[in-house]
Design a protein around this nucleic acid. Structure first.
Lengths: 352, 352
DNA sequence: CTGTTAGCGCCTTCAC
DNA sequence: GTGAAGGCGCTAACAG
């Protein structure tokens, strides 16, 4: 070996060993604490412009980037937030993530996404994630919180806001699925439908319960018979099964409400398979909206929710909680309205 | 204020101040370096079983979780990898992420997802992410790498593997879209089609170029005329526009190939809008597969790629690169095959 | 205006 | 078998 073991860092010498404050300091001929001050802009006016320039030049030359790990350890602030989801495909989650990123990004906070599996054992539990100290706070949009792992989400060792499909804690905000279901059901009733079925989603989940609640409100006010098909999941197979149960005994509904858009698409396929045409024979409404609802035939009428507001609200609240100034969250965000597309019509002759 | 400022930590006293090694040590009456050894299992046999138990009990009582930030700083190893994507909706990305998680999780490495926007200025650039030291390595599946931000992805200050839609560096692996397009085109030709159009995706992107390449191979071998509609993006609007250009001049194709499944769905809608029926009037093949291809009417025939292999391969390579034992990556993964569904038929009477 | 100093929580030789 | 001590890269008083 020719090379000495101690190497003085120089420009372009990144990758194996990144430039540190000391490297910049020695190149600029100052103390490294001064470099820290200058590069962070603290007491900026207090540093001589000449020195400042020299430091900045040195930093650029060495391609210095602060080690945020070290900074986080020192300041007990990572400037990272995490959002935990169980399903990356969910369009609601996606939109929400985008708006969280915007809010956090605006104040220099980086957003990372943790995907945890609700079925298989997740490789990293919520507790681990929270205890890692990599993030200052977590927005939990996970469908299933692993029970028994910890007492309550409130006990997690970082700031937490829970969003949507999970049990309620204090810092919680969700879409008002009760009102969404009520509104859609009422719409169908106004159109003359008398046999309306609901596919509310996974039993036990808060949102499924609340969809049932809202649906029931309209159904009971109109003195109709309720017809709820619980699915064990949100996938196509579960949806097909649920649709099947609707037609057991020969008499089917004239309208169906589904919790999600993928479920609506699967329902469309299942209905088609039974020889039923939407909306001529049966109407269909999705309780979740997404642009892709426009691409299928027929385009699926949906209830539209303020998903961006949800993200903004959750992010804002988390940031405030991190800063020790917790705000009261609105618990439920009312739907924006009903988007009329092509999957709804008045009831035809009821099937026999 | 009644409470003294110094507080001795006790069980249940998390959240404000997390238990550290020292806390555990003082509760167990040993030095904290011993706690470190025991809890990590290092030289485990060398610690007296009795002491070991006391330490473990104390750790559990205080609900001790190591601060991985501090550990990462000390060991220069975060045991985190990141995957960078521009599009969370992309089903290929999704599947890939899941398999990356599995591979990484199996060796105790946590996977986080970074979403960067290719249009708007991302709040965190690749350089920042890499320099943060929060992750040991990055799998970059981003459609657009922000140019000019750094010389080359190879210079990023952490291990990097590039996947799919990006310019090639040494550590690169992708799906063989050239072969996929060739295969699908050939299938159509074999069926008797003579006017086959391709919607290859965004111009300039590697995968679009390679789809064109493969398509061309089949087209030229059969001495057919090529017909490529460049889209400026992968969204529904761009797809509608592309379909429109196909029919300018009155004569349209009898079959069309799309780069992605969402594009295929949008094409289906666009074709329907023109009064064309799939597959009677025109055949449609998606060069990307996903279970949801089965839910639309007609179900969309697709080319199936080994997406999980892609994730496994990329993750494995990244892990090895992090450990300083880089492996040569296969550059392109051949398609698994063609999934026959309902969107393809022989050519009917060509339109006039 | 700039340097000195003391850690953040952890790992890791090196003694004893 | 266990304790002592140094330092990862950085920030934040406090000196001077």
């Amino acid at each position: 070996m020719r090379h000495s073991r101690e190497r003085t860092p120089k420009a372009g010498d990144i990758k194996k060993r990144r430039a540190t404050l000391r490297d910049v300091a020695s190149l600029a001929g100052v103390d490294y604490s001064t470099v820290s001050r200058v590069l962070r802009g603290t007491r900026d006016a207090a540093t001589r412009p000449e020195t400042r320039e020299r430091i900045k030049k040195a930093a650029k030359e060495l391609n210095y980037h602060p080690n945020r790990l070290a900074r986080a350890l020192r300041t007990a602030r990572a400037n990272y937030v995490g959002v935990v989801v169980t399903d990356l495909a969910n369009p609601t989650n996606r939109e929400m993530i985008y708006s969280i990123e915007r809010v956090a990004g605006a104040v220099g906070v980086t957003t990372v996404i943790y995907h945890v599996d609700d079925k298989h054992r997740p490789s990293h539990t919520l507790w681990q994630i929270a205890a890692d100290s990599h993030v200052d706070g977590l927005i939990i949009a996970a469908r299933l919180v692993i029970e028994g792992e910890f007492g309550s989400v409130d006990d997690l060792p970082c700031a937490v806001v829970v969003v949507n499909e999970t049990e309620i804690i204090d810092d919680f905000v969700a879409l008002d699925h009760a009102e969404g279901a009520r509104l859609a059901t009422q719409h169908l009733i106004d159109l003359g439908h008398r046999n309306i079925s609901l596919l509310p989603g996974e039993p036990g989940m808060l949102n499924a319960r609340r969809r049932i609640e809202g649906y029931r409100k309209s159904i009971q006010a109109a003195k109709l018979r309720e017809d709820i098909a619980i699915c064990s999941g949100y996938g196509p197979d579960e949806t097909f099964d649920a649709i099947s149960t609707l037609f057991e005994g020969g008499k089917g509904p004239t309208a169906v409400l589904t919790a999600t858009l993928p479920m609506a698409m699967a329902s469309l396929a299942a209905l088609r398979e039974r020889g039923l045409q939407v909306p001529r024979d049966i109407s269909l409404i999705s309780l979740q909206n997404d642009p892709s609802a426009d691409l299928v035939d027929p385009a699926i009428s949906s209830v539209d929710f303020p998903v961006r507001d949800l993200g903004n609200t959750a992010a804002q609240a988390l940031l405030e909680k991190i800063n020790g100034a917790p705000t009261k969250l609105p618990r439920f965000l009312a739907p924006i309205g009903f988007i009329e597309r092509a999957s709804v019509a008045g009831p035809g002759k009821p099937l026999q």
